[in-house]
Design a protein around this nucleic acid. Structure first.
Lengths: 207, 207, 207, 207
DNA sequence: GATGAATGAGACTTCATTCAT
DNA sequence: GATGAATGAAGTCTCATTCAT
């Protein structure tokens, strides 16, 4: 029996340990606040000892930072994929929203990132807010693109519309969190989608 | 100067101490999570000793519960006032949203309640969610009323519309919190109000 | 209506308060250790506020000292009465033991004193042990007297016999305390009395 | 010098730490009440940090419970040894008393157990009283045995005699504790042994 | 690389004591 | 004389972090 099939080489083992810690930490941060989460919880959730945690991460703050980085990567993955795909501005915008909702509903690392963002340690504030900033930037771009290609109503204020979309999206996230069921996010989004479509495509009444 | 003018009687003094603790605690809970907040922070913020805190409240959890109760009362005050006032369903709905936004923007106790609601201790969960439940119930009522009196489009799904309004409202709260400025909430609401009006009054496209 | 019938004059009122505190404190010290007993317990037991306690006694230690003094007085009362009465040495010895057992069974202040003696603060050590010292001194005296008047066996070692009696007496106190029923002390003493009588009156085998 | 001789392996080290805490705690509980004993005292006495205490025991109460368990084991050890040895009922009874007195005089864990028994926390009450119950049960058995084999006077009431022996034994424990010298217990027992022998072997006068 | 065990800073809470009314 | 209210010192316990094996 070769060692590599039964016992992975050190480097691989180490990577697997790190990954287990990351996922375990995400599971913990997804269900309680950063301050409430104890390293012991992460250790139990991941099956890795607390001591090992300090081999892979500098301290509690850094493991949260690593979760946020992983979240950023996964969200970027979805965004990149949708943006590179076919369709007009409106279609892409709906695709982005749906894709992110799907991701949030299923990926514990993204869920953890969202919870961490609502109560950031000063050191984490920037990492926690970056994903939101990126998503809003992309929403703005796609609205502009949609106005150009005619799929979105031309009389819209781009900034106000982006903020509006963001508010709905963030609000639904919080509400699904309250309901203790991130899984409900996609169906929630579907339920309010008619309102979003109306807002984006119908002529807009001035206040 | 008579003694009585300088030192208020015991009973008043005690009530004032309790109030100072409540407001101080709210200020602390409004800027950090329940778990992060130390009794020492509350003591320093309120100018009342930690020992006294335990004369007025049973423990840390109970002072948070008291903040949530105070929040509930203040929100009910606004809701009652608007609901008892004049106007059709749509007007009242806008009044309620505006009134709550104004309250949230200015009242530290309400702000603290909102933050506490996003990371409730099991014991606090119910108290923390009650204000949301009440607000949504009222939104539903007013939408129905608006449909009856013709101020709101008749083809709307009452539940979906209430959820949509709630999502926007909750989302704007979170965004203003992220921006470290609750004060921005009323203007944020104003900025998205055209979208809300459209959604409530224009004929609604079926998904 | 004269004040004195409805509201006792200050001095009497004060004495009554002090007495209530003393009895209340005894009731508390009789059921828990000095360190466990809280001033609040004494206040609740006696119906007198904690603040008042500091008008009548200097601090927690002094109220325990006052309980011990009161115990001393009551035990002396019993001893004096029996010693001044009729009878030979043996009869008086039995009278003292029975009298003290009766007192311990019924008087909460004496019970408190006994418990305090088993865990004395340094400041209380002397006051707590005095009653025991006095009782043993009297036992020795009475044994000597009994030997002289022929009611007690002449070949006894006075000191060893006094220690033996003391051990039995102290042991029965502890056992009735364990049984959570000081009231059982007199019947316990009666049950072992034959052994005591034998020990005091029969010729004694040398070890 | 090889490393292995200087630092014992983890498992041994851990056991040694637990033992040090147990003995240190016993030393503390032997000289002050459970409520007076501070974790800091135990830490200083044992040379182990307070934090470590919570690695080995759940809380202050559990460490006292562990002391009581250890006491139980040691007393059982002595009892088993004497009971399995040679001799008639009287001889074994004297052996048990002497053996226990010796143990109490020298073993700080047993001393601590005795003090804890006099002021038990509700949770500890049962564990604290068990050793007494066992000792009395064995005394009863041996008295019966002694009556059967003729070494103890046949006209004795077994229960009353056991109670009497227990009272003397408990009383001497308390008295040696008062004298701040558990070491005096064996000689105290020796001093009153003639009375015990008389009580057990001479014909018994009815009350 | 991994981990069991140890540590100390600091959190929440209790309680004897004081003081203005 | 009596008391409600306030205080701060000190106690128990938790937990991020370290280190020898």
């Amino acid at each position: 029996m070769s060692r590599s099939t039964r016992n992975p080489p050190r480097q691989e083992r180490s990577i697997a340990t790190r990954e287990a810690l990351l996922v375990g930490a995400a599971a913990v941060f997804a269900r309680m606040s950063y301050a409430e989460a104890r390293l012991r919880d992460i250790s139990e959730e991941s099956g890795i000892s607390e001591g090992s945690l300090y081999f892979h991460f500098g301290n509690k703050n850094e493991i949260a930072a690593a979760v946020l980085n992983a979240q950023q990567e996964r969200m970027s993955g979805v965004l990149t994929q949708v943006l590179g795909g076919p369709g007009d501005g409106l279609r892409k915008l709906r695709g982005v929203i749906g894709g992110l909702a799907e991701l949030i509903a299923t990926d514990v690392i993204v869920q953890a990132g969202i919870k961490l963002a609502s109560q950031p340690t000063p050191e984490l504030a920037s990492a926690a807010h970056d994903p939101y900033v990126e998503w809003v930037r992309i929403a703005r771009t796609l609205i502009g693109q949609g106005i150009d290609d005619g799929s979105i109503s031309a009389d819209l204020d781009v900034d106000a519309t982006a903020e509006f979309l963001n508010a709905v999206f963030v609000g639904e996230q919080v509400l699904s969190e309250f309901a203790d069921s991130w899984a409900s996010l996609p169906s929630r989004i579907q339920r309010v989608e008619p309102f979003l479509l109306d807002a984006l495509t119908k002529a807009h009444r001035t206040a």
